[in-house]
């Protein structure tokens, strides 16, 4: 029997600490019987309630898919309906707080895995990474959505969100990682558009030896809080790692 070893961590960036803005990243994993659901969201920098938006986006994704009967059947219509219901929730939250829905702008990366199939969903930047054909190397599922400029991306609250979200449903994999924009430039090589495997391999390898999700979460958090990361990015950053381990 194999089972998922998962962990998620979101850590505030040094620039957010300096400017006393909250951590606008949020991430979570949830295992419900055989279904694993993970999501990462990065709230837009200047949207005033984007930290709340990110939390709502992630929890709504997990709630929406935790009882899914058939991952293989997930299609664009399902995801479109999910996205519409998310915007409705954000809209409600906005009107309760005399705010605009765009004040809750955030990206969303999500994974739903059954024992045989896996669905990947993305709107905005950040990336989901899975094993490639070669052992020890990885591919991204979708390249981060940046448009022409480094400081632009798509958000769940954008008018064209229904058109720009991406979805892939495939055979399940043995491990994957999800990360937000804050780690993008440390893991993805922009010139070659490849995943820098050494940026993730030690983490995946260690996950196989980890004894519990709790220990794994503690490790990921400590890593994201380390100087090794904070010397290289001052942004909020999230990392989700999931590995199938033998029970």
């Amino acid at each position: 029997m194999s089972k998922w070893r998962t962990a998620s961590a979101s850590v505030i960036g040094t620039s957010h600490l300096k400017h006393q803005t909250p951590c606008q990243d949020f991430s979570l994993c949830s295992l419900n019987n055989d279904t694993l659901i993970c999501a990462v969201s990065d709230g837009a920098g200047t949207a005033s309630h984007s930290d709340v938006g990110a939390r709502i986006a992630v929890t709504h994704f997990i709630r929406s898919f935790r009882d899914i009967a058939d991952v293989a059947a997930i299609d664009r219509d399902d995801m479109g309906r999910f996205l519409a219901s998310l915007v409705e929730l954000l809209d409600e939250e906005a009107s309760n707080n005399q705010a605009a829905v765009s004040d809750y702008a955030c990206t969303l990366l999500g994974v739903v895995a059954s024992p045989s199939r896996i669905a990947y969903f993305q709107i905005g930047d950040g990336a989901i990474v899975i094993p490639s054909g070669e052992p020890g190397t990885y591919d991204w599922v979708f390249w981060p959505q940046h448009g022409e400029y480094a400081n632009t991306t798509n958000f769940v609250t954008d008018a064209n969100a229904q058109a720009v979200f991406q979805l892939r449903v495939e055979a399940v994999v043995s491990e994957f990682a999800i990360f937000s924009d804050g780690l993008e430039r440390l893991i993805l090589h922009e010139a070659t558009r490849r995943v820098h495997a050494p940026a993730l391999r030690p983490i995946f390898d260690w996950f196989r030896t980890a004894e519990a999700d709790r220990e794994a979460t503690q490790a990921l958090t400590a890593y994201l809080e380390s100087d090794h990361i904070n010397m290289r990015t001052d942004d909020d950053k999230s990392l989700v790692v999931a590995v199938l381990v033998q029970d």
């Binding site: 430039r185 440390l186 893991i187 993805l188 090589h189 820098h196 050494p198 940026a199 993730l200 391999r201 030690p202 983490i203 390898d205 260690w206 980890a210 220990e215 490790a219 400590a222 890593y223 380390s226 090794h228 290289r232």
Partner: peptide, 10 residues
Amino acid sequence: QVPFGYPDLV
């Protein structure tokens, strides 16, 4: 302590 060796970053 971070229990794995620090990954090589891009």
